[in-house]
Amino acid sequence: MSHLLFQLSLAGYLAAAVLYTIFFIKQKKTLHPAARAVFCAAAGLHTVSLVARYVAAAHTPITSIHEIISFFAWSLSCCYLSFRWRYAVKNFGSFAVLLITVLMLTAAAAPQAILPLPPELRTWLLPVHASISIVAYAFLTLAAIGGLMYLIQERQLKQKRFGFFYHRLPSLEALDSLNQHCIGLGFLLMTLGMTIGTVWAFQLGGDRGLGWHSKIISAMITWLLYAGLMHHRFVMGWRGRQAAFLTVSAFAAVLLTLFLLLIKGGI
């Protein structure tokens, strides 16, 4: 059941990605509502598929590689939809939906069997820690997409060469406020997720503490990088190009953490 729903939502995301790409290239206004409707439908199906998997597995589906990537894609959809009503960031959807679709394809390629949960992971802290962290990473990913778009647009404006992207990308200020919004929320959630994770680790390992895994070290470095970025942005007034550049660079640490998480085969 959940498998079928997953396939359906994947098809929906693929259709939305195609529509968004055509919209991005042709800039036909009539296409946009259709693309958005398809995307919302796909996200809805995806939500139902996660619920179905939760029911089938009897635990929150964020343990296997397939589940983590799928949940990550779902978080991206939700985060994107959460602010697109508040900030109109022109053509941001085209980039976000493309990334979501690539993630869904990756999730589809991973083994989808439902694995029994090892006994030490059977705690309510796991789903809370994992979901909050993944949503945090989703916001940071969106911030990085925005940062990349900022750097492209900034370059066009500085060099006064107005190509394909100049007309299609939003204004610098829109991208900068997107950055502020996503980094702020992402950092807050990441801190929360790490705190819960630490509590859980102490509960699990007793006096062994965190047990410095590579994943945990990488998460710490990521947190420090974003803490620095937050400090520079809000205290020293680093915005615009520097902020966008830092956001994109710090995202490398997010990718590393996610990679380390995935090669271990889950939580």
């Binding site: 647009q153 404006l157 100049y166 939003p170 204004s171 610098l172 200020e173 829109a174």
Partner: peptide, 9 residues
Amino acid sequence: ELGRKIFGD
């Protein structure tokens, strides 16, 4: 137009 690309609104 350039102003709009920089500042949005």
